[in-house]
Amino acid sequence: MTTATSTNRTGALQRAMLYVIVYALTLLWLVPVITALITALRTNDDILARGFWSAPTVFTLNNFVLAWTRGGLAHYLPNSFIITLPSLVFTLFLSSLAAYALSRFRFRFDRLILFIFVAGMMLPFQILLLPVFRLMNAIGLYNTYWALIIFHTAFQLGFCTFVLRNYMRTIPGEILEAARMDGCNEFRVYRQIMLPLTLPAMAALATLEFTWIFNDFLWALILIQDDALKPVTTGLAALRGQYVMDWTVIVAGSLIATVPTVLVFLFLQRYFIAGLTLGATKG
């Protein structure tokens, strides 16, 4: 046996071992998801009587029905959309305006303004909680959908402006200049040239922002008190608080709450991944 083939063999063996480790780790990573699925499909009595680590005797969809009806997901879930979709539209629109100004113009304080947006997006929420709570109370929006829509729109402007600005800077100035020469004013250049060219970045941001806003818990906890207005995140936490609710129903509810973001992810995965890296690296 020559040395070349023996190193090839150890190489192949090493690779096989590496693959086994990676596949095992992947399987381990799916354990919580699999656990949740199995839990939601079993009856609480079955788990209580025989422990989780036992072959299920019956499978049922009743937990999903209970979570939807008695658990209140039938109104929590629509609330999440009522809050998320307008926030998403407003924040994308407004940040594209700000990004256009910050990417294509040179003016006094332009860098300071960019700095403010980027610094603001990294803040720990706790530093904003009390003043925002107080302000929303003062202007009478506390405990309304609008409180969350306005806050999410404003806060997400930081990240979206930063990402869109970096993206817009990669678009060659000649294209815009040509339009200006043709007599377009800045607002038409923005709307008819810049906005269509920015759509890929917008799509990436939209998927990411949808997930973030939809999954928000803290702001809904602070700004919404009325059970009828709660989004699905604080709604689920409230379910957990009621000790009459079985774990199987809570887990089924959790799975229902995850469906919208999973769908967005499945269909727009490419954009989602692009969005994740947009924020961390420079455009």
Partner: peptide, 29 residues
Amino acid sequence: RAPRARSKSWWVPYVFLAIPLAMFLMWVI
């Protein structure tokens, strides 16, 4: 960066920034 805005229209970037910046200052900074 883009060519500088002509001095006659120095206010253009501020118009684009007005609402987003005001919201960010009011609700975050």
